[in-house]
């Protein structure tokens, strides 16, 4: 078990290193720089600024110095928010984004899971086609379209829910969570449908029916566990994806989360901020993938036994 986790963590190091390297050089290849949009400044001031942020060093030395900072857990100072470090900015945005991601995940699992299971019980009937068509639409619909639509219907026409904000008015977290979670709900619906279809055709389901159990017990007690393993394995990448993909929703609903800092940083060529957020998110993705793999393995008694031995 620990060996497995250790190996996976070691494998993550080169992955993250590649992400850092590619991002580091890409942002610098992009035209413009952090200070190029400023009004004309004195050359001395510009030189001082560049010296402060190590921009006067050759590129490769900048890279090595940055890696050194990272090794100490320092993402460096932000170029555009003078006096604030990238660590602080991430620390400020993360709780909001994480909360939003969690609600969205909840929406995705509950709606997607139930829809998928219901569809799998009567395959190729209306009970299957209707939720699966909805899921297909959910996957195709980008959040920048779904968000404004939901706002239009529930915020303006029906006037049931607030149109923007985060934690100011009761109910203002509902629409962002649904907007962000719907695409993932659709994925989970398809995953759980496929998983349940597979499990419900297994011989042990027939055994359960031969015992005379009512159908709902057959599904819940004997079907769900195996059928939902693929969904659990998807949760890690899904949560990481939700965090990374939340900036559109944060922009639509005016939510002060990490995603907005990230997008602004890209426009501003805020090198350290872009890099910091990218490294941070990619580390999270690796970690959540590992977590969900462990959880999915844990649900399977056979794999659990193998883990125990190692």
């Amino acid at each position: 078990m620990w060996r497995f986790i250790g190996i996976r963590l070691l494998q993550a190091i080169p992955v993250i290193l590649v992400v850092i390297t590619v991002t580091f050089f890409l942002v610098r290849v992009a035209p413009g720089g952090p200070f190029s949009a400023e009004k004309a400044v004195l050359p001395e001031v510009k030189a001082a600024l560049e010296a402060q942020y190590r921009l006067d060093l050759p590129l490769f030395q900048q890279y090595v110095a940055y890696l050194g900072d990272l090794a100490q857990g320092e993402f460096g100072p932000s170029f555009k928010y003078p006096g604030r470090s990238v660590n602080e900015l991430i620390g400020a945005g993360l709780p909001v984004t994480a909360e939003l991601g969690l609600y969205a995940l909840l929406v995705a699992v509950v709606i997607g899971g139930i829809a998928g299971v219901i569809a799998a019980l009567k395959p190729n009937t209306a009970q299957d086609y209707i939720p699966m068509t909805a899921a297909m639409i959910g996957i195709c619909m980008p959040s920048f379209l779904l968000g404004p639509l939901l706002v239009l219907v529930f915020g303006i026409y029906l006037d049931w829910l607030p149109v923007s904000g985060w934690g100011d008015i009761p109910g203002d977290k509902i629409l962002p969570a649904i907007t962000l979670g719907s695409a993932y709900a659709a994925y989970i619906a398809r995953l759980s449908r496929a998983g349940m279809l597979e499990v419900m055709s297994q011989d042990y389901i027939r055994t359960a029916r031969a015992k005379g159990l009512p159908e709902w017990q057959v599904v819940v007690k004997h079907g769900l566990r195996g059928g939902l393993i693929p969904v659990v394995a998807f949760l890690g990448p899904a949560f990481a994806g939700l965090l990374a993909g939340s900036f559109v929703v944060e922009t639509i609903f005016q939510i002060p989360g990490l995603g907005r800092f990230y997008v602004q940083a890209a426009f501003n060529r805020d090198y350290t901020m872009i890099l910091g957020t990218t490294v941070f998110l990619s580390t999270l993705i690796v970690l959540f993938n590992l977590l969900s793999d462990i959880l999915a393995a844990w649900m399977n008694p056979r794999l659990r036994a193998q883990f125990g031995e190692n």
Binding site: D203, T207, A208, A210, H222, R225, G226, N300
Partner: peptide, 24 residues
Amino acid sequence: LREIRGRDIAMIFQDPMTCLNPFM
């Protein structure tokens, strides 16, 4: 029928590898 299945009439199947629930 369900009342009879598993109470008055019980079954054994061919492949014991797949007929028992691996998760229970």
